[in-house]
Nucleic acid binder design. Structure first.
Lengths: 251, 251
DNA sequence: GTAGCAAGTTGACTTGCATCAATTTGGATG
DNA sequence: CATCCAAATTGATGCAAGTCAACTTGCTAC
């Protein structure tokens, strides 16, 4: 239905060039010596461009590849038999999607483009072949996966121990620092995801997210209008995330 | 009361013998060809035996090794600056502890023996060297780490969407199937962890765990006396874990 | 423009679980 | 076996966040 302005983006050669990619200091090339970069380029495929809401893969898709976000952003979630959804992560340019699926025949989650998004595709069979030859790349993959486990543990911590305000403050700060690493403003950004996704990710009701946003706004900590967010008082936000800890130490 | 000769212990010379280990079908050897087993044995170190409550490592320990549980069981948890603890997992014989730490210089969590526990130690530098040479082992490591991410996502799902009863039913069933895979009774076992650990892991108060246990007992679903648990009606337990899903489908 | 619908906000009410407090149980120790 | 202390249980009460419902805002399409 939507008649998408189909080729607005610079024409994309079939092969991706990691050397020229602006994300090379965030993405897989980061791990690789200059002169081995070519070998990564040999296996990476320029993925398609996805429109907002399009699935990159879902839980019924056979697992073949991991995807690096090139532009835009991606949300992953698991859908249970009962049809409930749990958002498991948001991915920004340079981040690798699909690591959780390395253990099975199908993807372990569903990945959806949150906005117009382009990706690079790394077929796992070839990737594993290459990691076998490049110890640095192998090491980096282990690091990435370890980091993914830790992120997920942090999420569990957040979900089981923290209040609504603390969870949302944490998310805002996490986004902030990730934007910063991508050389975008850490205090002035546009949320790639809807309130609904935030709520689901943080284990809250949408209404609660909405209320906390307005509460923060009334306190002058943030200014939010729709998806546009400005962090007015980062220190206050950091303070909120440690609220729990402070309370426990006082006594 | 419990004479906790729970898991068959393998004879332990200083060098571990993976070939003779009764866990070889659960642990790393599972991935390796018969004639490559020796190379794994070359790098594995027979770890010490830890008494209940002893730390195997903690967050200040420099990360050097992953540990396979040989007998006993281990709990991992992250401790925040504020001193709160979040239990991130329980590990049984054949399972690998420390994968979440692959991304940093120190361990990402603290590992504690829940009972008298012995482990095998795999120094990561040597392990990575070996995975570079044995594609099957590398593949298996990726699988394990992927599985770990998934487990953690499942935990997040549990924490954010499920009630106290559902969480506890899930844990009991998870333990049950893991005992079964180790050729122990899936319906009659002794919990390796205290109520406190269960509560912390599942994001509940101890009191709630206690109440749910007695509720299940009154409903004739389980019989629990201290750490000894008997699952009387596994189907009912499975039903409980899907409670949420059912409710949502009905309408 | 304005119709139509999804996304977001706000208020009133409900509830599951935490918290607090008081026992009880159980395993270790001399 | 009596003592001690940690772990577990049970009951009473309060609250943070969920639910339900009404309303507003902001797109998108025609």
């Amino acid at each position: 239905m939507a008649q998408p302005i189909r080729f607005r983006q610079a024409a994309s050669p079939l092969k991706a060039s990691c050397q020229q990619c602006s994300l090379s200091n965030l993405c897989l090339p980061l791990a690789i010596e200059e002169n081995d970069l070519g070998r990564l380029e040999e296996i990476v495929q320029q993925g398609r461009i996805y429109n907002r809401g399009e699935h990159i893969f879902d839980q019924s898709t056979p697992f073949r590849s991991c995807f690096a976000v090139k532009s835009g952003s991606v949300k992953t979630s698991i859908i249970t038999e009962g049809g409930e959804e749990q958002v498991t992560g948001f991915f920004m340019p340079g981040e690798l999607v699909g690591l959780d699926s390395m253990s099975g025949e199908s993807y372990a989650c569903t990945a959806k483009a949150l906005e117009r998004t382009s990706v690079c595709e790394f077929p796992v069979d070839k990737l594993e072949e290459l990691t076998g030859k490049l110890p640095d790349l192998q090491h980096h993959m282990f690091r990435l996966m370890g980091q993914e486990i830790q992120n997920s543990h942090q999420l569990a911590l957040l979900l089981s121990k923290n209040t609504a305000e603390e969870r949302i403050a944490s998310l805002l700060l996490s986004l902030s620092s990730r934007f910063q690493r991508r050389r975008m403003s850490p205090t002035n950004f546009s949320l790639p995801m809807a309130r609904n996704d935030i709520a689901n990710f943080l284990g809250l009701a949408v209404e609660t997210v909405s209320r906390v946003f307005t509460r923060f706004q009334n306190q002058g900590i943030i200014h939010a209008r729709g998806r546009e967010v400005e962090l007015l008082d980062v220190e206050a936000l950091q303070l909120v995330t440690r609220e729990f800890a402070r309370q426990n130490c006082q006594q």
